[in-house]
Design a protein around this nucleic acid. Structure first.
Length: 788
DNA sequence: ACGAAGGGATTTTTT
DNA sequence: ATCCCTTCGT
């Protein structure tokens, strides 16, 4: 599929515009732009280097300057540098910045890219060594899951017990650890009753039949090649004089082994990362990789970038204190020469809706500068949430008040159903052997080919050892399909013959062909006739897809790229506040950042703690660190006492991370709201140092707050600090028994029906059945003591 | 073969 | 609450 002869990396560089010799004599003005640490990191070209780059310390600048310096000093030619990133975005940015530094386009840096993109390039060259053809196709998650599902069903395994999604997760996990089916440790295999490894092996076999790989295979196959063909490995070890790795803390075991093998040639490896920003443990990242770098590469130079150019001292202090609670850090001390600016703001709310309302009002005020500081543009502001379901409250609110917003992250362009369908048509047109693609669209639009018809085709294909498309053809000519399917599938097969011929024809305009495929197949018509509200949008997307084809020579080239470049930059301009997850915000920065939802259970996420214990909690804490350090000038943290989760009202305590904030750098805001303020925060204040202090300082000197404190002492409840463990205070829960009549400020009176973990199951007279943290109700006979 | 209704789950995300 | 997927009924 790819004609990589064209970009054959070893060849390309020699003719590139950057001849090593020509560059050698050049001065290095870019060095003057660096601080001493950055400069040291750039100039330590030889030997292993670990660059510990804290948030906002100019990591990318150091990294790109280092590449420029390598080239400029004649140490390496562009194609002798291996520079890996995790995302296409990072790779793109790096290319652009290197080019800018050198004042010219960098041609021939073929080995600057994502792990996956580089592995595709390597694997296409050596595919036969792992039993593949070099035109293998790359399956995405969707294809992967459909394939696994087939295998599960075929093996007669209960889908409920072994959901394809779960199996795919297990297999990915194994691949992240560089375990091929035969290398899965016995203990691990036993944990899944041997069935897991069986299915894994079957899956790999099936992939080979399909001449396909999934994302994990890209790395794993190349690793296998390196491990089993020392000649091939040696060739690359020799070739890559310098190796650079971005976001090293995010590497998994497979990537680590891959890098270690390649770097063994010249031992010039420079890893850049920040252990405090390791937030991808759940998908296989090993912080350990960065922690033991010096052991792996004895004599390594370790350079710390600690001067922060992004945030004010207050923000930095808050972030530093929070992350300080983590164990086993490599340790950095971020500093800045910026002026103090505003303290980190902390505010509690009664519920999630009020929180959204308040942030909306803040954003409006900040735009006009009415809030007392410089006017801010909406696109200078961001709301960073822990989980995407939190976004909805903001979207709802911002829609009602007409505040422009942009959700970053969501489903990506190439993951949308209509795009994948269209691509499946293109895939079959280009490679009629692509069974998964054919299967996807054979009955889309409806062609009367349901389960039964498809099984017939599958059987025919298997029996004759041909592709599904050929199987379909056989069924049609043998009259094995029922009336409706017979005609329409027959027509489809003929259409694919025509389209395939055109796809191979160099004179054929590929854009016209794409349009023709979508129209003649009835796919466009299907959406035109669809009256659901999203249909027009889907047609729009299809138009965009066709437009994207302009950038490519042919359909094949397009498909090749899209497999790896699944991101979409649909920046339609216009000032909008960004809403995204904390994960999505890594690497970004905003003058003003809102961090809502800081409640125990939500953030830190209960699930994370349940599944990974202290390790999970520490990763959550790093997430908090990432969140705070995104802010340049203004950082606002908030929490809500009540929130609707899965349709049920739930109460929660403020996040333990709030206790970890340094009070000197935090300003506690009084929420607007009923009863003279202090509503949410007072109700929530239970264990927060901040709020306690605030109360002392009369910030929370509301009657309600005082009464709450009085109530807590009279009832002899455990002090919240003591209860701040992995499990929430159970003393309070045990203060009640079934049948107790209780009062809740929001839901009114009710009876305790049962106790579930840390929550009381209460049947409220007006509000129905709810699960509530005991702290938020009082015995009905004490209802007068309720501080609101 | 296809649409409606019921059941279960629901962190985070790249390639 | 909502979404997705399976099952059931036509």
């Amino acid at each position: 599929m790819s004609n990589f002869a064209e970009d054959d990396a070893f060849e390309a560089a020699a003719s590139g515009s950057l001849s090593a010799r020509a560059m050698a004599a050049r001065p290095a003005p870019y060095l003057d732009d660096l601080n001493p640490a950055q400069r040291a990191a750039v100039e330590a070209l030889d030997g292993p280097v670990l660059m510990l780059a804290g948030a906002g310390t100019g990591k990318t600048k150091a990294l790109t300057t280092r590449i420029a310096h390598l080239l400029n000093s004649g140490k390496a030619r562009p194609n002798e540098i291996l520079a890996v990133t995790f995302t296409n975005k990072a790779a793109r940015e790096m290319k652009e910045r290197v080019a800018k530094l050198l004042g010219q386009t960098v041609e021939g840096m073929p080995w600057l890219g994502t792990f996956h993109a580089i592995c595709v390039k390597l694997l296409r060259r050596h595919a036969e060594l792992v039993g593949l053809k070099s035109n293998f196709t790359i399956l995405d998650t969707d294809d992967q899951i459909r394939l696994l599902k087939q295998l599960i069903v075929a093996a007669n395994i209960d889908e409920k017990r072994w959901p394809p999604r779960m199996l795919s997760g297990i297999i990915d996990n194994w691949k992240n650890r560089a375990w091929t089916p035969d290398k899965v440790p016995a203990a691990e295999a036993a944990a899944f009753n041997q069935r897991g490894t069986e299915l894994y092996a079957q899956y790999q076999a099936r992939l080979k039949e399909l001449n396909a790989v999934d994302f994990g295979d890209l790395l794993l196959h190349v690793l296998t090649i390196f491990q089993t063909h020392s000649d091939v490995l040696a060739q690359y070890q020799r070739w890559f004089r310098y190796v650079l790795v971005d976001e090293y803390q995010d590497t998994n075991v497979a990537q680590y082994l891959w890098l270690r093998l390649l770097a063994q040639g010249h031992r010039n490896i420079c890893c850049v990362g920040d252990d405090d920003q390791s937030i991808y443990g759940w998908r296989g990242a090993e912080v350990g990789n960065i922690l033991r770098f010096e052991k792996d590469f004895p004599g390594a130079t370790v350079i710390r970038l600690e001067q922060n150019y992004r945030s004010t001292p207050h923000i930095l202090a808050a972030a530093s204190r929070v992350i300080d609670a983590n164990e086993g850090r490599l340790g950095k001390t971020l500093w800045t020469d910026k002026n103090d600016g505003e303290k980190v703001r902390l505010i509690g709310h009664w519920d999630g809706e009020e929180e959204a309302r308040w942030i909306g009002e803040e954003l409006e005020a900040m735009q006009g500068g009415t809030r007392g500081q410089r006017p801010m543009n909406l696109d200078e502001c961001a709301i960073l949430v822990r989980a995407s379901h939190q976004m909805r409250a903001f979207e709802d609110r911002f829609l009602t008040i007409g505040l422009p917003y942009r959700v970053i992250g969501g489903p990506r362009f190439y993951e949308r159903m209509e795009i994948r369908d269209a691509m499946a048509y293109f895939r079959v047109a280009c490679s009629p052997d692509d069974d998964l693609a054919f299967e996807r669209i054979v009955n889309t639009p409806k062609r009367g080919a349901g389960d039964k018809a498809q099984q017939t085709m599958q059987r025919a294909a298997r029996a004759n050892g041909v592709s599904l498309l050929e199987g379909a053809r056989l069924c049609v000519s043998a009259g094995e399909l029922t009336g409706k399917a017979k005609g329409q599938v027959g027509a489809l097969v003929e259409q694919f013959d025509r389209w395939h011929a055109k796809a191979l024809d160099p004179k054929q305009n590929h854009i016209e062909l794409a349009e023709q495929i979508l129209d003649d197949s009835g796919y466009t018509t299907m959406w035109q006739n669809d009256k659901t509200p999203e249909a027009p949008g889907r047609l729009e997307n299809l138009k965009e897809l066709v437009k994207a084809l302009e950038n490519f020579e042919n359909l094949q080239g397009f498909l090749e790229h899209v497999a790896l470049i699944m991101d979409n930059e649909t920046d339609d301009g216009g000032a909008k506040v960004s809403i995204m997850t904390l994960h999505g915000a890594k690497g970004l920065e905003f003058p003003a950042v809102f961090l809502p939802g800081w409640e125990d259970g939500l953030f830190p996420s209960q699930r994370s703690m349940d599944e990974s214990g202290l390790k999970g909690l520490e990763e959550e804490r790093r997430l908090a660190y990432v969140g705070i350090t995104r802010a340049e000038e203004l950082c606002t943290i908030s929490f809500a006492a009540n929130r609707r989760v899965y349709g049920q009202w739930q109460s929660a305590l403020p996040s333990r991370f709030i206790d970890e904030l340094p009070e000197d750098h935090v300003e506690v805001l009084t929420p607007p709201g009923l009863y003279g303020g202090g509503y949410g925060a007072a109700g929530m204040g239970g264990g927060s140092t901040i709020v306690d202090r605030a109360a002392d300082a009369n910030v929370y000197n509301s009657p309600g707050w005082k009464r709450l404190q009085a109530r807590q002492s009279t009832r002899g409840m455990s002090q919240p600090q003591e209860s701040r463990n992995m499990t929430i205070d159970s003393t309070a829960v045990s203060a009640y028994t079934q049948g107790d009549r209780v009062f809740h400020t929001k839901f009114g009176y009710g009876y305790v029906m049962g106790i579930e973990g840390d929550k009381l199951d209460i049947e409220f007279e007006k509000a129905g059945s709810k699960k509530v943290v005991a702290k938020f109700v009082v015995a009905a006979d004490r209802a007068d003591d309720v501080p609101f």
